[in-house]
Design a protein around this nucleic acid. Structure first.
Length: 845
RNA sequence: GCGGGCGUGGUGGAAUGGUAGACACAGGAGACUUAAAAUCUCCAGGCCUUAGGCCGUGCGGGUUCGAGUCCCGCCGCCCGUACCA
């Protein structure tokens, strides 16, 4: 008998599948389609266990759907633009393009041995001119429909390197290379008008039944629809009033000051002839652009000297302060502060000694606010100190509505709905991205490039020896003729955010070689993605941008109406985590090391001791990645696939450990060995046949349910159990062969190569991969008797075995008669007996 | 700071409000073997002296006949926070 040799059988079966062409997605009328997609990878150069886990899950779904009679589309591509390629060019020389395509070739080579059921004929990379040229066409269509525009927005500015930094390149407020204190600076940039769709993107979340509730909730909060009051404060100096937006107008009687953002036009106007104030604003603009940096920065404020009148009491004057925690992007960039009921306002008022006035108290506690603001939920009833609408006890919601009504009636304000969602800034001051296809002409202004001139290709002759965008320095590329008037003009040198690339690749997969962005007939057949699988880290941005893009593409005629929500079902897998190994360089900055370079907490090469940082998401920058290639060469792809599915529920994070791989391999060897033994048996029946076949049908039932519900780990646990049953069963050859063939089929989505070999040795017809999925016989799942636990006061005291449909009174009698129950009752009569049929008996003593 | 999630043996984890720890890993004992590997069988949450009992799902409360599961308040960790992908 031959032993299980993954290396031999995996190559053999991959060749057989290839030859049969079974993974090519084809449109036929006789079968329903199924589109399964895993979020495509960034080509870092090495696949890691997170990829293996992600693609194996998708592969299980794809293979299962194939064997249940679907035309399956299961494509793969590369999210190939982005910063790491430029960083590599700067660090080690070479060209981003070469680096990226080499990485893609390497990763494809590492991925293919996994035996995934991918239609490789549809592969593309987002950095292929054929792809990004179509993306430029989309941009021009969006521009025509008014979905793209330009405005100013702040970026991280490194004043030493004189360059824009990504948030990731800002560490503790300093540029990662120069170490200079980062400032916020305004640039004119391109924006997608995603805010046009705020309300629709919000309300359509309700239709996404097969998305995780947590993702829908996160998107809902991100879009952040709020109803509030917008009104203006009259200035005592008669200048233009200051318009504010507030979601808590009911607390207007607790107003302490009016606050404006450091980026507010009033602040900017004053800056010009007030050096002192200019210095203060420069201080406010220090640090990065992230919400976190802004909101956790120490509170800074300055009195502008401007005074405004309270809208409800003209004699009540409020000071106008500039405060660094007020965002220009949200609302009107100006607020009124009510410190008693907002922690940020309170912290600010305590720091600058501004008044704190309570406007309401809890029903049972009238302690004035000291250091903690009183912020009850808006549904909670509170006791009002004084409310201008005459309220005494009312909820926040009631008070807000009353205030808006009052303001509208008296004409000093109006109720407005606002969204937290901002327009999507897509401009990047970088080389390795999709060029924005417009030209700047002195005479004509901003002019779109003509579609026949697409793609606007990136030039290859660039250098990365200086900071900043090489396109800015590339004169022969930058200088061009205006598409409108033909005079000399300048090409836009900003490229697109890489989120643009990933916002429509799923649509492109339906017709990857089309000479328009999509092919309607193909899109209509294959869209939507029936099952999308990816990391929870994409819960908001990528998925929201893709939902916007699907709508925008629909408006431009690139997707059908039915594809406005492009992902029917979403599954967010947990991340693969790993410890981080770090040393420090001479400046005390962290240097990271790959797990394969580490042994016993020391660097293999030098023996230097390492700091071990607890598990975090595997990331290229932290180097805490594990190489699946060594697992595959040692044990085979099936072992790797089996292991990543078996040890952890798919939605949860999994900590990679090498320990389990060997056990998985042992089990697969056992399946192979047991199957070979069974193949050699004669077919005589025994009295054990039925028991085995009953177990087989239970396995079919449970594994099918597991695969359909992403309960892969549970399905695998059942397969372990069924393998044990099969190995120990005294059933005859015919029954055991049937059971073993079924086992092979049930394992096939997870361990396709092993399953083909088992299928073959047991005389299965054709390929196991294309054989119809087994169906459980309901009659074989029914049990005659059932074991019930008996509890007394919620503690288990006994177990009884009764016929499945015995009536409650009879069950109760048997339970009470049990010796252990009698002992606990100690002669007393039970107060109550609860019988849950088929489940449990609970005696209340 | 804000939004979302998670927390169960030595380890990964299982459990429609109904027997907590399935299935594995690591560990222990045994069989086979000259020996080893491989394979097979059995044990295994903690505590108490056994029959048996008590405790036990991050911590503190609550709802329920019954809570890992639902509610309230904490603690810890993870993800996102709009220029990482």
């Amino acid at each position: 008998m031959t032993r299980y040799s993954a290396a031999d059988i995996e190559a053999k079966w991959q060749e057989a599948w290839d030859k049969a062409g079974i993974f090519q997605a084809t449109r036929t009328a006789d079968k329903p389609k199924y589109y399964v997609l895993e979020m495509f990878p960034y080509p870092s150069g090495r696949i890691h266990m997170g990829h293996v886990r992600n693609y194996t899950m998708g592969d299980v779904v794809a293979r299962y759907k194939m064997s249940t009679g679907h035309n399956v589309l299961h494509p793969m591509g590369w999210d190939a633009f982005g910063m790491p390629a430029e960083n590599a060019a700067m660090a080690i020389g070479g060209h981003p393009k070469e680096w990226t395509y080499n990485n893609i070739a390497d990763m494809r080579g590492q991925m293919k041995p996994l035996g995934l059921s991918i239609d490789w004929s549809r592969e593309f990379a987002t950095c292929d001119p054929e792809y990004y040229g179509q993306q430029q066409a989309l941009f021009l269509d969006f521009l025509e429909k008014g979905l793209v525009y330009r405005k100013n927005a702040v970026v991280n500015w490194d004043p030493v390197d004189m360059t824009v930094l990504a948030n990731e390149q800002v560490e503790a407020g300093r540029g990662w290379r120069s170490g200079a204190l980062v400032e916020r600076r305004e640039l004119t940039q391109w924006f997608f008008k995603i805010s046009d769709y705020s309300d629709e993107l919000l309300s359509a979340l309700d239709t996404l039944d097969n998305w995780p509730a947590k993702v829908r909730l996160m998107q809902e909060n991100w879009i952040g629809k709020s109803r509030g009051l917008q009104f203006a404060f009259e200035r005592t100096d008669g200048a233009e009033p200051i318009t504010v937006y507030t979601t808590r107008p009911d607390t207007l009687n607790g107003a302490s000051f009016v606050g404006i953002s450091p980026d507010h036009p009033i602040a900017k106007a004053m800056e010009a002839d007030d050096a002192d104030l200019a210095e203060f604003l420069a201080e406010c603009r220090k640090g990065g652009t992230t919400a976190e940096a802004i909101e956790t920065a120490p509170k800074l404020g300055r009195d502008t000297g401007i005074r405004v009148k309270h809208p409800l009491n003209p004699d009540w004057e409020l000071p106008v302060w500039i405060a660094n925690f007020i965002l220009m992007d949200y609302g009107t960039g100006a607020i009124f502060a009510c410190p008693a009921h907002d922690q940020r306002d309170l912290d600010f008022c305590r720091k600058y000694d501004l008044p704190v006035v309570d406007t309401f108290f809890a029903l049972d506690d009238s302690t004035p606010v000291a250091t903690e603001a009183f912020v009850p939920p808006k549904e909670q009833k509170v006791k009002w100190v004084s409310h201008f609408a005459g309220l005494d006890e009312a909820t926040g919601d009631e008070a807000i509505n009353a205030t808006i009504d009052l303001a509208e009636k008296d004409g000093w304000g109006e109720g407005v709905t606002k969204f937290r969602l901002r327009d999507w800034g897509l401009s990047r001051q970088r080389y390795w991205g999709c060029p924005i296809p417009v030209v700047h002409c002195d005479a004509c202004g901003v002019v779109p490039e003509k579609k026949e001139n697409l793609p606007v290709e990136l030039p290859d002759d660039v250098s990365f020896d200086k900071p900043g965008n090489p396109l800015d320095r590339h004169e022969t590329w930058r200088d061009c003729a205006c598409p409108a008037c033909g005079k000399p003009a300048l090409r836009e040198t900003d490229t697109m955010d890489t989120f643009v690339d990933s916002s429509w690749y799923f649509a492109r997969f339906t017709a990857p070689r089309a000479e328009t962005p999509t092919d309607m007939a193909e899109a209509e057949y294959w869209m939507n993605v029936d099952q999308y699988i990816g990391g929870i880290e994409h819960a908001i941005l990528h998925l929201l941008y893709s939902r916007f893009f699907a709508r925008a593409m629909n408006i431009c005629g690139h997707l059908p109406d039915s594809a406005k929500e492009p992902f029917d079902a979403l599954f967010t897998q947990g991340m693969v985590t790993h410890e981080i190994y770090q040393t420090r360089d001479e400046n005390g900055r962290p240097v990271y090391h790959l797990p394969e370079d580490v042994e016993d907490g020391k660097l293999k090469a030098t023996g230097e001791a390492l700091e071990i940082i607890p598990s975090a998401k595997m990331s290229k920058s932290k180097k805490n990645v594990v190489d699946p290639v060594s697992i595959i060469s040692a044990f085979g792809a099936d072992t790797a696939r089996w292991f990543v599915l078996s040890d952890s529920p798919p939605e949860r994070d999994v900590e990679w450990t090498a320990a389990g791989a060997e056990a998985a391999h042992k089990h697969l060897s056992r399946v192979y060995r047991v199957s070979a033994e069974i193949a050699a048996m004669d077919d005589a029946a025994t009295g054990e046949d039925e028991a085995l076949l009953r177990e087989m049908h239970k396995a079919i039932d449970e594994v099918t349910k597991g695969v359909e519900s992403f309960g892969f780990n549970a399905a695998i646990a059942k397969l372990y159990g069924f393998t044990n049953t099969l190995a120990k069963s005294k059933a005859g050859g015919a029954a055991k062969k049937q059971a073993a063939k079924t086992l092979a089929q049930l394992m096939s989505p997870m361990t396709p190569h092993l399953s083909e070999s088992v299928w073959e040795m047991l005389g299965g017809t054709g390929l196991a991969t294309t054989a119809p999925w087994p169906v459980a016989d309901a009659a074989m799942l029914v049990e005659d008797s059932v074991t019930l636990p008996v509890q007394v006061n919620g503690k288990r005291r006994a177990e009884i075995s009764v016929p499945k449909d015995m009536d409650k009174a009879e069950v109760e009698k048997i339970a009470l008669a049990h010796e252990a129950v009698q002992r606990v009752l100690n002669g007393g009569a039970p107060k109550k007996v609860i019988v849950v049929p088929g489940r449990i008996v609970n005696v209340v003593a």
